[in-house]
Design a protein around this nucleic acid. Structure first.
Lengths: 231, 231
DNA sequence: AATGGGCATAAAGATATTGTTAAGAAGGCG
DNA sequence: CGCCTTCTTAACAATATCTTTATGCCCATT
């Protein structure tokens, strides 16, 4: 239930890396490290960590470029950790969607406190753990879906899609948003795969897929799921 | 609809106070100041500002005590602005629920960026911008339109048009302005397509399209939408 | 009363977008 | 190795939307 908080550290300098790992490891966080921007992005997509610590000086990509790409598909909280104390750099990073910016060298306990603050912000807008409307019920904790009380089987992608829409019930999600959130930052803008999956989900949960009760299409924009009756 | 963001500054030192007021006032924020902790708390309660800037050195209460009291009833984002650069102080403030901690002296643009970040964190939770008048309600965040509580369907262009007018409710938008904003900078000056779309929208939201309640024609000029009742 | 400009409306063809089906590719597992 | 499930791609059918065209109304002006 209370699995360890998982932090991804994207940082190429060895000494800094091992220092932070030791500092946070003692605190009970689970740390994964990436030494390059590309590795960091791919790990972010595959691991879905709870928070990312991002150094701005990386061998391949600029840290700001990593942040920009990450933000195109993910809201994972990002705390920048950088030796650079320049105004312009800080402003850019924060406006690209970083949640905090800590300058090296830093107080160890301040970093930990800022990580707690960033995690608090993200937990703040995690939605309810159960979606329910009409005859459909999705338990986002247990990863189960029931229709008329009967559990139904969804493949991995189908479930990811449905739970993403359920978490944003009532709100339109654009095709690109969905593609990036599910197929990762490098997803092509190919809606076909989305259509096929939506058709498959609809066949499983809608009485009449041509006249959907749960999954609505907003032509030219994206998809929207019926409002959650729990709010 | 686009009311100024309201910031409460709790700070007793005059020079700092006027500096920050000038800095943020130029940026378009509406600032109210309080010179003591008690005054700050009472203004926070009565004004419900969008964000609070809190100095930790106050004549009556310790800034941390102000924060503790505030957090007992409110989630208004708080950014600490303090001359104190001690680890212990920062950790306490952040763990008491401050959203950020900026040490004086600070880069002016960094402060502004951190304020934007704090506002972004809070906006995530609050329902975004909403147009509401008579029986019509447009949720610009969810991209939904309700008439008498019933959701109604608008096509892509219809929604773009209506939300553009709603964002500028009360103001006349000329035909060319609208055409450029929706059909792009190279749009022909062909108002006919605009008329057709307006007629379609009116048919969906007006009781009697010949006698509109929401979408008014300014002959020879453009269109105007009824004032938003939320301001 | 006739005229013309500006606007609203209806309808139909053209265009773009989406749904559906099925077949092949990739990968897990006995 | 062969069976199974799942994922992806492609082709085509079904639908929704956009734009244009045609027509009528209102109103100010002559």
């Amino acid at each position: 239930m209370n699995a360890k908080v998982h932090i991804l550290l994207i940082e190429d300098e060895k000494s800094s890396c091992s220092y932070i790992t030791a500092l946070l490891g003692k605190t009970g966080y689970h740390i994964t490290t990436a030494a390059t921007g590309r590795e960091g992005l791919s790990l972010a997509a595959s691991l879905c960590p709870d928070l990312i610590l991002l150094d701005l000086m990386l061998p391949d990509l600029n840290g700001l470029a990593v942040l920009r790409q990450l933000r195109s598909w993910s809201h994972i909280p990002v705390v920048i950790v950088s030796v650079c104390d320049e105004e312009q750099e800080k402003v850019e990073a924060l406006d690209l969607g970083a949640d905090d910016y800590v300058t090296k060298p830093f107080y160890p306990n301040e970093l930990k406190a800022r990580i707690r603050t960033a995690l608090r912000h993200s937990h703040h807008h995690t939605p309810g753990q159960i979606y329910e409307a009409l005859n459909l019920r999705i338990d986002l904790d247990k990863r189960t879906t029931y229709l008329n009380g009967q559990q139904i089987h969804l493949t991995q992608i189908e479930y990811q899609l449905l739970s993403l829409l359920a978490e944003n019930a009532g709100r339109v999600l654009t095709y690109n948003t969905i593609l990036r959130r599910i197929w990762g930052p490098y997803a092509e803008e190919n809606n076909q795969i989305l259509r096929v999956n939506m058709a498959n989900i609809r066949r499983k949960i809608e009485k009449n897929p041509a006249c959907p009760q749960y999954l609505f299409t907003e032509v030219g924009v994206g998809y929207r799921m019926r409002e959650n009756e729990n709010g």
